[in-house]
């Protein structure tokens, strides 16, 4: 018998103990969350459909009780990914802070890599925004949500009235800019964390990460801007 028996839980704990294990968890959960961000963007952009009812039909499909099991399964997986991402990030952050108890009198930042340095701030702010966003447009705790019928939210009306408030739009746009930075670093960094790097392809991966991160921010920010400038009206 060449294989030494190790209890699976013991093996997982040993894996997670190492910073590389935690980074792998962050990369995998990051992939899942990035996938969700793109799916959400495609959902949002339906507001520009020439058929004004398109986005409401899409919302009706998601809220259809027949799809409830799939919806909650997806939500559970995403919540688990968010939880693991945050826990691993917090543990690594604490370890990194403890690794240099006394800082420098003078310290230069080489290279600039602003996105990489601010992950620990862009993450929690985007996280706070997501909570606000869910309270606003899913739970209806910020503004009263209009419904066309049971399980049929009037998304078009709710989005346009919400974004007519410059504070709500402003927070949304700020969060999307930070999300853009977070996604840029996250999307190329996940390859590095999972052990994939090549002098020919890594520069392309970084460029693709920048293009995709900017596409998410521009696509999402266009909606509150269109509402505030009167291009999108109910």
């Amino acid at each position: 018998m060449s294989t030494i028996a190790i209890h699976p839980i013991h093996r997982a704990v040993r894996f997670y103990e190492a910073p590389i294990g935690k980074k792998a968890v962050m990369a995998i959960t990051g992939v899942m969350l990035v996938g969700y961000v793109f799916a959400h963007l495609l959902g949002n952009l339906q507001i520009y459909s020439s058929d004004a009812e398109q986005i409401n039909r899409y919302a009706g499909f998601l809220h259809n009780p027949a799809n409830a099991a799939a919806l909650w399964a997806a939500r559970s997986v995403l919540l688990l990914a968010v939880a693991l991402h945050i826990i691993a990030a917090t543990q690594l952050w604490l370890q990194n802070r403890a690794a240099r108890p006394i800082g420098y009198v003078k310290k230069a930042d080489l290279p600039a890599s602003y996105a990489a340095r601010t992950m620990i701030w862009s993450g929690p702010i985007v996280g706070a925004f997501v909570i606000f966003h869910v309270l606003h447009l899913t739970a209806g705790k910020v503004l009263e949500l209009r419904e066309l019928g049971p399980n049929m939210p009037d998304v078009r009306y709710n989005v346009i009235t919400g974004f007519s408030n410059p504070w709500i739009s402003g927070f949304y746009i700020l969060a999307m800019i930070l999300l853009c930075l977070h996604l840029y670093h996250g999307m190329w960094s996940m390859f590095q964390s999972l052990g994939i790097s090549h002098p020919r392809y890594t520069p392309l991966v970084k460029k693709a990460a920048a293009v995709l991160a900017i596409a998410v921010a521009v696509g999402n920010c266009s909606i509150p801007i269109a509402v505030l400038t009167g291009l999108l009206t109910y």
């Binding site: 190790i6 190492a18 980074k23 792998a24 964390s193 052990g195």
Partner: peptide, 24 residues
């Protein structure tokens, strides 16, 4: 920085596909 990706690769492979001695 590429060597760090290589280390991550070796570590993850050892942990995920190792059969005992290597992963320990």
């Amino acid at each position: 920085l590429e060597v760090i990706a290589r280390m991550n690769h070796d570590f993850l492979l050892a942990k995920l596909a190792g059969r005992g001695a290597a992963e320990e």
